[in-house]
Simulated scan of single mutants.
Amino acid sequence: MPDSLPPPRHVFVYGTLRAGGSNDIARFSPAPLRIADGVIAGTLYDLGTYPGAVLGGEGRVQGEIYRITPALEAQLDVLEEIRPDDSGEYIKREVQVPVAGALLSCLVYEIHPDRIAGRAPIASGDWFRRA
């Protein structure tokens, strides 16, 4: 009997991990599979050379959805400074993202609330269209 594989994981990326960004997710190995563009509820903040999203509220954050492996998820956790006690730069969350008329469960890296003090929101919700 073959070993059962874990269900595919998906990640919603909204900043430097987007295609063409300084940390383009396609540079990681194993390479992820791009599923779709997406939008989630939240507010995007400008942290200088990268953004941070706070989930929820009336705002919208633009991003991309990728299918990833556990090995790639582990690399992203290191990049985003995930800590078991949620004290790192980002906190890993699960969100439901509308895709082609259905909801897809995606992990998203939400900025730690302490990191946005005094930072300006990005009105467009799109890191690539920040002004």
Rank of each mutant, 00 (worst) to 15 (best):
M1R: 14
P2T: 08
P2R: 14
D3W: 13
P6G: 07
P6W: 00
R9T: 11
R9F: 11
F12I: 06
F12R: 03
V13Q: 04
V13F: 00
Y14Q: 03
G15S: 09
G15M: 05
G15Y: 05
L17S: 05
L17I: 06
R18S: 08
R18C: 07
R18I: 08
A19T: 15
D24R: 10
I25A: 01
I25H: 03
A26I: 08
A26G: 15
R27G: 11
A31K: 13
P32N: 11
L33V: 15
L33E: 11
L33A: 13
A36F: 13
A36T: 08
D37T: 14
G38N: 06
G38A: 08
V39P: 01
V39R: 10
V39L: 07
V39A: 07
I40E: 01
L44C: 12
L44M: 09
Y45A: 08
L47V: 06
G48E: 04
Y50P: 01
Y50H: 10
P51H: 02
G52S: 12
A53P: 04
V54A: 11
L55F: 06
G59D: 14
G59Y: 10
R60D: 10
R60K: 14
V61F: 04
G63K: 06
Y66G: 01
Y66V: 02
I68S: 02
I68A: 05
P70Q: 14
P70G: 05
P70H: 01
P70K: 07
A71F: 05
L72I: 04
A74G: 08
A74P: 05
V78R: 03
V78P: 00
L79S: 08
L79G: 01
E81M: 15
E81A: 09
I82H: 01
I82M: 04
R83W: 03
P84V: 00
P84L: 00
D85M: 05
E89I: 01
Y90R: 04
I91T: 00
E94S: 14
P98K: 11
P98R: 14
P98S: 12
A100P: 01
A100N: 15
L103A: 09
L104V: 11
S105D: 09
S105G: 13
C106H: 01
C106T: 07
L107R: 04
Y109W: 12
I111K: 03
P113Y: 08
P113L: 10
P113S: 13
P113H: 11
D114K: 07
D114H: 09
D114F: 02
I116R: 03
A117P: 08
G118Y: 00
G118A: 10
R119L: 08
R119Q: 12
R119D: 11
P121H: 06
S124Y: 05
W127V: 06
R129H: 15
A131W: 14
